[in-house]
């Protein structure tokens, strides 16, 4: 595990460092896709900036509201740099509102914007999986495979790296096929692909949250999400000529041959 990078007298924690890098990389990739979809990539960078500010401010406001007496007795702690003093639900809601507001303000096409954001999110998730691996978070079950890694005093499945590799493979696959996908498709396939990756690799994660009769919660959520997304894609097949319909290359070939 490499949870700290030592650069001379400076010790840098790898998790927040990679989280920041992942956020930037995801934004950069989203901007690339946006440009190919006819959206000015500057919109993506602006959106990322506003969303980050909103998440930080509203996340902290949420924490202040929940623990107002503590903050009232020590107002300076409102500026505490500790990222744990946040309410994630407030931050996520703020990000969603910022995206919605920005999309409406600049009349950005929803399907194209969704494609760019979902695809960019994949790279952020891959970077976070790497950060998890370096920090021993969400570790794997015991393994005797030659590629097992030593984490928490035991040889374990490098499940964080399985997730990273699966997600990178998905990014490559979608990049290769993007020209054949209509607006809206890329985002749907990105989400479905990531759900499939999690459904597969989470079988090797240790100490998962369980539901029902010992089922792994994250696998069940991924499975439900995957089935819903595939059904949405299936539904789109019924109307291949609509602007948001799904048309595959092999479908076009088939239609053309008729």
């Amino acid at each position: 595990m490499i949870s700290t990078l030592h650069l001379g007298p400076v010790a840098l924690p790898t998790y927040p460092l990679l989280a920041l890098l992942g956020f930037y990389l995801g934004l950069w990739l989203a901007a690339q896709i946006a440009a190919r979809r006819g959206i000015n990539p500057d919109h993506l960078y602006n959106l990322g900036f506003y969303a980050a500010i909103a998440a930080a401010v509203v996340g902290r406001i949420g924490h202040i509201l929940l623990f107002f007496p503590a903050y009232r007795s020590d107002p300076i702690s409102i500026l505490s740099p500790n990222l744990a003093a946040f309410q994630p639900v407030f931050a996520v809601a703020a990000v969603a509102i910022v995206i919605l507001f920005y999309q409406r303000r600049y009349h950005l096409p929803v399907a194209e914007l969704g494609d760019a954001l979902a695809y960019g999110a994949l790279l952020t998730l891959a970077t976070l999986a790497l950060a998890d691996g370096l920090n021993g978070r969400h570790f794997g079950i015991a393994s005797t495979q030659p590629w097992a890694i030593e984490q928490w005093s035991m040889a374990r499945h490098p499940v964080q790296y399985y997730e990273m590799l699966g997600t990178l493979l998905l990014i490559a696959l979608l990049w290769w096929r993007q020209q054949t996908l209509r607006p809206g498709q890329l985002g749907l396939w990105a989400a479905a692909g990531y759900a499939a990756v999690r459904l597969f690799v989470d079988a090797y994660r240790d100490q998962p949250a369980l539901i029902g009769d010992g089922y792994r919660q994250s696998q069940v959520i991924a499975f439900i999400a995957l089935m819903i997304l595939l059904l949405v894609l299936y539904q789109s097949l019924a109307e291949p000529d609509t602007p948001n319909g799904i048309t595959f290359e092999w479908q076009q070939e088939e239609d053309g041959s008729r």
Binding site: H63, I64, L66, F67, A70, Y71, S80, P81, A84, A85
Partner: peptide, 10 residues
């Protein structure tokens, strides 16, 4: 990292 009173209470 440093905890403030609210984080500690939480």
């Amino acid at each position: 990292g440093q905890m403030n009173a609210a984080l500690l209470k939480e």
